[in-house]
C-alpha cells in the first residue's frame, strides 16, 4: 500500500500560503501518525511551502506515503539557490524588506526543515529552480 498526491503552489500568493501544508496535515491525521511525526512533517512542509511562495514563480509538492516513511518532494520554478551551504546556515536569508515586514524570511527556513526532517536533499540550478526531497521516518513499530 502506498499513497501519492500532488499539490500546486502559486508563487507570491501570500494570502493562501500554508493551505497546502494544512491539507497535508489533515491527511496525516487521517492516517493516524503519532502527534510528533505530524508536528515535524507539518513544520518542514510549511517552511518549504513558504519558501516556494516567497521566491518561486510556481511550484508543486508531491506527498508520498509508504510504510515507515513520509516523503515530500517540493519542486519549483524559481531563482534557485547559488550556495546551498550558505543557505543552510542559521539566520541566513535573502528575503526582501517587504517579506520581512509581513513576518516572513526570518532566515530559518532550510535549517528548520533540516532539524525536523530525518533526511533532506537539496538540488538547485540557478535561474531554473530548486528541489527539496524531505523524508520523515514514522517509526512504524512504535506507531502501531
Amino acid at each position: 500500500m502506498s499513497f501519492t498526491r500532488e499539490f500546486e503552489i502559486v508563487g507570491g500568493d501570500f494570502a493562501s500560503a500554508g493551505r497546502v501544508s494544512t491539507e497535508i496535515k489533515a491527511m496525516l491525521r487521517g492516517i493516524g501518525y503519532p502527534p510528533d511525526v505530524i508536528r515535524r512533517t507539518a513544520i518542514a512542509s510549511y517552511e518549504a511551502e513558504m519558501n516556494t511562495v516567497m521566491y518561486a514563480r510556481r511550484g508543486s509538492v508531491r506527498l508520498g506515503l509508504e510504510p515507515g516513511v513520509i516523503h515530500l518532494v517540493f519542486a519549483d520554478e524559481g531563482p534557485g539557490i547559488p550556495d546551498i551551504g550558505l543557505a543552510m546556515q542559521e539566520g541566513f536569508s535573502t528575503a526582501t524588506d517587504e517579506m520581512r515586514e509581513r513576518g516572513f524570511g526570518a532566515g530559518m527556513g532550510l535549517p528548520n526543515i533540516q532539524r525536523n526532517a530525518d533526511r533532506l536533499e537539496i538540488t538547485s540550478e540557478v535561474g531554473r529552480g530548486t528541489r527539496l526531497d524531505i523524508t520523515v521516518l514514522t517509526d512504524e513499530e512504535a506507531g502501531r
Binding site: G30, I31, G32, T138, G143, R144
Partner: peptide, 11 residues
C-alpha cells in the same frame, strides 16, 4: 479522525 487503526489499511 483516523481512517483505520492499522496504518497500512489507513494509507
Amino acid at each position: 479522525q483516523t481512517l483505520d487503526s492499522d496504518r497500512a489499511r489507513a494509507i
